[in-house]
């Protein structure tokens, strides 16, 4: 993921953190399934907290992986 200066959610005025929308959440996890840190994604603290909650719920429902294999 490219380093970004602006919080994606602030910029898009998006407050909808839906754990069922795994497509959107996938933008904020690495190919290994880890949550992308704020210093890389640029997400502000408030939105990162909500994002974290949504990703963890999605993981519980197997919509997102807890850990993913990287094939080379």
């Amino acid at each position: 993921m490219e380093r970004t200066k602006f919080c994606w959610f602030c910029r898009h005025n998006d407050e909808d953190f839906d754990y069922k929308n795994d497509k959107k959440l996938r933008r904020f996890i690495t190919e290994r399934g880890k949550i992308v840190p704020r210093r890389v994604s640029g997400v502000c603290a408030r939105h990162q907290r909500k994002l974290k909650q949504a990703i963890k719920r999605a993981r519980f429902l197997a919509l997102l992986p807890y850990r993913a294999e990287v094939f080379r």
Binding site: K20, G33, R59, L61, A62, L63, L64, P65, Y66, A68
Partner: peptide, 21 residues
């Protein structure tokens, strides 16, 4: 419903299931 989806990891030996809310 989200329809039938493939799991990111197996649940009870299943690979997919039907999601509803």
């Amino acid at each position: 419903s989200l329809g039938t989806r493939r799991f990111a990891y197996p649940i009870k030996k299943r690979e997919h299931g039907y999601y509803s809310f």
